[in-house]
Design a protein around this nucleic acid. Sequence first.
DNA 1: AAAGACGGTATCTATTTGATACTGATAGCT
DNA 2: AGCTATCAGTATCAAATAGATACCGTCTTT
Lengths: 134, 134
Amino acid sequence: MDTNVRHSSGLPANVLDPDCPSRVIFQRIGDKWASLVVQVLDDGPVRFSELRKMVSVVTPKVLTQTLRSLERDGLVTRTIHAQVPPRVDYELTDLGRSLLEPLAQLRKWAEGNVPAILAARDAYDDAQDEALLG
Amino acid sequence: MDTNVRHSSGLPANVLDPDCPSRVIFQRIGDKWASLVVQVLDDGPVRFSELRKMVSVVTPKVLTQTLRSLERDGLVTRTIHAQVPPRVDYELTDLGRSLLEPLAQLRKWAEGNVPAILAARDAYDDAQDEALLG
DNA sequence: AAAGACGGTATCTATTTGATACTGATAGCT
DNA sequence: AGCTATCAGTATCAAATAGATACCGTCTTT
């Protein structure tokens, strides 16, 4: 007996199944900004304007959308402080924090393989040029 | 002395730096289809039409774009067999395979947290409804 | 002769992302 | 009183991207 999470259909969660909610979740983690935001929030609560600087360069509209999604999915909390000028803090939930480690692995991979990937691109682009000039 | 990979600026690779190539790479891994394709290719070479079925539902245009990018970045090879009807196999490179583990972690997270996230969404949406109905 | 397999490309539309300007509440300065 | 600044966003419009759908060339099978 497997111990995988199952969804309403009774099937185990499977990212490759287009109807499995895990797929939507998986693709949302891969969102262009969401995963960066989560990583920035690692160091504790951050207010909107700070977040914008730390995740640069993201427009306020897109950052708002990203944060609303993260909040809806229970990864982030939004706290409004009754101050003037306003102060709104965003902070990771436990669920959000649980995502930090998988993300860190991916980040490490990305940062560690920059040279290999740039080299591959150069080789590919050169080959393309060759083919065209042939 | 740290052992991080550095890029041409001499700074260590850092996903949070908008000018660091690792950021582009990080965001490309998070591409809607690329990471699914890589996972499907875990079991060995797969041809185009098979891939389309396994990663459903992706249009041929988008799958082609995804595969070309993966090929350019050195994660995937494309092999044309001189047959009729044509056979084109896509296969992971060593670099591509090295991405499997970080991706598997993320996948596990996504699949394992489906219930928590769906519950958070329900709660959030209910709260929104409350606020609107006053 | 017609239809089908395969790996795409071409074309058009819908959705998403992004740039830029603006709002409302209040405090501090002149 | 009037001007400016801070902050957390919205509103509006343009640009880039993703997706739906139809089609192509080559050969084999019926």
